[in-house]
């Protein structure tokens, strides 16, 4: 029993970190495809070794901490994002029985961990002692905290329907029908909040390249920048797998393929959507994003919550 746990933890870590690294290649290739260019195609077959080359390069870069930065926090910040996202993966059920910690408060744990991610942005931006980083951090903090709210409210839909906070339980409860159908609105809200949470285009406002150079991580280089980078791709994977778990039946699927494969396939569809979004959307202004969140998404998510609860009560009666 003990050994099995270690296998799962090791396997999950191995697969996740490799996925995140592979995503960097995947995204660059897909963006290139959609943008009429080649993308990385030299190192290895289809350029897949670019990730290895990039990682090596990052490792050999000078581990530079700007003299004006707050050293401890500066080093600590990038670790937070990777750690918190990896922790959140602990509750994600990848297949029947393949889960690191099958907690009965899985959904809450996920929310808690993804909220911790904001510390990474705020601390990184603050410790850099750079005005661009500061602006990015401020934007990041308010964006992520606001969108956390709608994300949490949207999540309550599947929780009400299944009657459990346990993610495996939520998946099992979708045997009859995936929650995408009764929870379409909730899914849309969760998805939008998820983009904001991972601060990807169109909501990459904390780093908004054309405005803030690189936003909160302007001062970062080498492997510390690499951590932010990996953290971002882990975040995409996390949100995609949560979407699959909560709304698309998790590992459920026709029996000719094992559950894990179904899970991975579904997750990759959403990862591709993330990449496609980046290829096609402009970026709204920071205040427009906040306005959209609080004036549109917030009422909608409340409505969704109320509606779901009412229907559930009505059916149960």
């Amino acid at each position: 029993m003990e050994a099995q746990y270690w296998w799962i933890i090791g396997g999950v870590l191995f697969v996740l970190l490799n996925t995140a690294a592979g995503l960097i290649w995947l995204e660059r290739r897909m963006l290139a495809l959609w943008q009429d260019r080649y993308g990385p195609n030299r190192a290895g077959p289809f350029g897949i070794l670019i990730v290895l080359a990039d990682t090596l390069k990052l490792f050999f870069k000078e581990d530079w901490i700007p003299p004006f930065a707050d050293k401890v926090v500066f080093v600590f910040a990038p670790a937070v994002v990777v750690a918190s996202v990896l922790m959140a993966f602990a509750v994600v059920p990848f297949g029947p029985g393949i889960v690191v910690a099958d907690m009965n408060i899985g959904v809450l744990f996920f929310l808690a961990m993804s909220s911790l991610g904001v510390y990474s942005i705020v601390l990184g931006g603050w410790a850099s002692n750079n005005k661009y980083a500061l602006l990015g951090a401020m934007r990041g903090a308010s964006q992520m905290i606001s969108y956390e709210v709608f994300m949490g409210l949207a999540l309550m839909g599947p929780v009400i329907l299944s009657g459990t906070f346990n993610l495996s339980g939520i998946v099992e409860a979708q045997r009859g029908m995936w929650y995408i159908f009764p929870q379409l609105l909730g899914f849309v809200i969760f998805f939008i909040a998820g983009i904001a949470e991972t601060h990807r285009l169109p909501f990459d406002i904390p780093e908004a390249e054309s405005e803030l150079v690189a936003g909160f991580h302007s001062e970062y280089s080498g492997m510390k920048f690499g951590m932010f980078f990996i953290g971002e791709y882990l975040g995409i994977t996390l949100i995609s797998s949560m979407i699959v778990t909560l709304y698309f039946g998790g590992w459920l699927g026709p029996a000719f393929l094992p559950g894990v494969i179904w899970f991975v396939l579904k997750t990759f569809v959403f990862i591709m959507v993330f990449i496609l979004l980046r290829a096609s959307m402009p970026r709204p202004r920071y205040d427009q994003l906040m306005e959209y969140g609080w004036k549109v998404l917030f009422p909608l998510s409340l409505l969704n919550l109320l509606g779901t609860a009412a229907v559930k009560l009505f059916i149960d009666k």
Binding site: W34, R37, L201, A208, S210, A279
Partner: peptide, 16 residues
């Protein structure tokens, strides 16, 4: 201009 407001792809098509 599209890139300035965050749209990454058009610039590639237009340069082509």
């Amino acid at each position: 201009f599209a890139q300035d407001v965050g749209q990454l792809s058009p610039v590639f098509y237009m340069f082509t």
